[in-house]
Write a protein that binds this DNA or RNA. Structure first.
Lengths: 181, 181
DNA sequence: AGTAACCGCAACATCAGTGTTGCAGATATC
DNA sequence: GATATCTGCAACACTGATGTTGCGGTTACT
């Protein structure tokens, strides 16, 4: 593939992710215009609208897997791994703001990859609980779900915070909650 | 309006809310079929698709305002008001699972109503902090956003919990977080 | 029981989004 | 500079969703 074609491709993907997050029914034409290319150019790279959506979600999964790898969730000390994960995943959530659960219905392969990611993070949270860093009386599914929502919230509703600040905030809230003591 | 017409109307509204939450691009035809009425019947009640969406969000706002009124956020003791609010708002989130922020763009009147609700809840959270129930070192906007996400998460991802159980879980997590102590 | 309101059905027009093709010009790469 | 690749543009066909209308039959209300 030629270099300019590759550039256009990533531009379309990132623009598409942004617009589709705001409005999941955004048309191919709107994405093409916002990306600064012709509508037919998008169709040349992505055979169908569904193919474009798949590519966007794949890009998010790629980035997420990289973050989990680099966080070393199974080996690093729990507080270190947690913070490294948060600092990595918040920019991913910002770059690919699409809602993962929506698409997963029609793309079984993507769903499997996402399930694998979920399981890795869930295992980390169970280890954190076993090692005494998290409460043992709370369902890990609830812990996992709440952490994910905190990440998305800080990523999209507090865009002025940079990644380290946002990670600090999420970690503090996640561990200590909002109650005075 | 005749009684059967009123019944159909609420059925369409609730069915629409459910389907539109799963997929915001659900067609009027799909909503009509799922609600057990003809497509033209829906069009007789709602002049356009946009009108149907507005009605769904209005219904959610109506229910939310009722909950906030009954929670007596300005008078009741903070722990009581918080629990009463949670126990009321979780069923609302389940009955009207649509994402409020999406629609608010095109409907200024609805956005104003939603802003008023936000302000009431935010004022409650500020009172809670002032009376020593919440940490004073956390931005109330973050507190508000996080609480809202916890509510939505428990409402949709943990449907087996009944409202009181879910409210207990959210209140516990909100106040204490997930860290061991 | 009579009346007004409501509904389903069929048919139609309209419109926006999707996907395709051919070609001429521009651009990266060698 | 030659070549292969990519792009924009124009044109076209197709599909699905939206919105409307008229009519005959059904259902709620008094």
């Amino acid at each position: 593939m030629r270099a300019d074609a590759a550039r256009n491709l990533v531009t379309v993907l990132r623009t598409g992710a942004r617009l589709l997050a705001e409005d999941p029914s955004t048309s191919m034409a709107a994405i093409a215009t916002a990306a600064g290319v012709d509508r037919t150019t998008v169709h040349r790279r992505f055979a169908s609208r569904e193919a474009l959506l798949r590519a966007v979600f794949q890009a998010k999964l790629d980035a997420s897997e990289r973050v989990l790898d680099e966080a070393r969730l199974t080996e690093a000390p729990v507080p270190v791994a947690l913070h490294r994960y948060l600092e990595g995943i918040i920019p991913v959530s910002r770059d690919w703001p699409v809602d993962t659960r929506r698409m997963m219905q029609q793309d079984p392969a993507a769903r499997d990859r996402r399930d694998a990611l979920s399981e890795r993070l869930d295992a980390f949270l169970r280890r954190a609980a076993a090692e005494g860093h998290l409460r043992a009386d709370v369902d890990s599914a609830w812990t996992y779900a709440a952490l994910g929502r905190l990440v998305d919230t800080v990523a999209h509703d507090f865009p002025t915070l940079d990644a380290p600040q946002a990670a600090d905030l999420v970690a503090d809230t996640f561990l200590n909650g909002f109650g005075a003591r």
